[in-house]
């Protein structure tokens, strides 16, 4: 089995790591960098709990071999808030109570962040479709969709002023 040295930028910090060919990105993030906000749910890209950003795009970290992520710029849920200040998406999730047990929340917030970077003015159908791969087994989807739309409204308001 081959070993490889990889360079990642995770939440703005450069990391150099030695990984085995069969190690997965999710395990490097959680077990080596202790970024446990990224959750292990199903392991086969069905649930979205492990979603992280690769650049501006959301990907499921349970499916990515760590060695294949060499050179990637990764943002996990821990890297969204800057200097303790929540992002509009995080703030809306809190304010609208779009959280029940909280397990799906990091994946939801990360995917919603990618959504709003791509489409700052989504309608409800767009949000539902974009989040269709993120499961909330408490089934709290109504508040989650509202939170994303609320964040979009706030960001649009901020951009206009």
């Amino acid at each position: 089995m081959s070993k490889h040295t990889i360079n990642l930028t995770v939440n703005g910090k450069r990391r150099t790591l030695d990984v085995q060919s069969n190690e997965l990105l999710i395990d490097v993030l959680r077990d080596r960098l202790y970024l446990t906000g990224t959750k292990y749910g199903c392991g086969i890209a069905e649930c979205g709990a492990c979603t992280v950003l690769h650049g501006d795009r959301s990907v499921m970290s349970c499916l990515v071999p760590a060695v294949a992520a060499d050179g990637w710029e990764i943002t996990t849920s821990e890297g969204l808030a800057k200097d303790g200040e929540l992002t509009p998406v995080q703030e809306s999730f809190v304010n609208l109570g779009a959280i029940q047990c909280g397990f799906c929340t990091p994946g939801m917030v990360v995917t919603s962040t990618a959504l709003l970077r791509e489409n700052p003015d989504p309608d409800e159908a767009y949000v539902k479709d974009y989040l269709r791969g993120n499961f909330c087994r408490c089934t709290g989807y109504v508040a989650i969709v509202q939170a994303v739309l609320d964040a979009a409204g706030k960001m649009k308001g901020a951009a206009a002023t």
Binding site: H4, N22, L24, C42, I44, C62, P65, V67, A68
Partner: peptide, 15 residues
């Protein structure tokens, strides 16, 4: 069987 780890051992090549 699990869905957490890849148990198989192999070499990685990137042309």
């Amino acid at each position: 069987m699990n869905t957490k780890h890849i148990m198989k051992e192999y070499d990685y090549l990137k042309p």
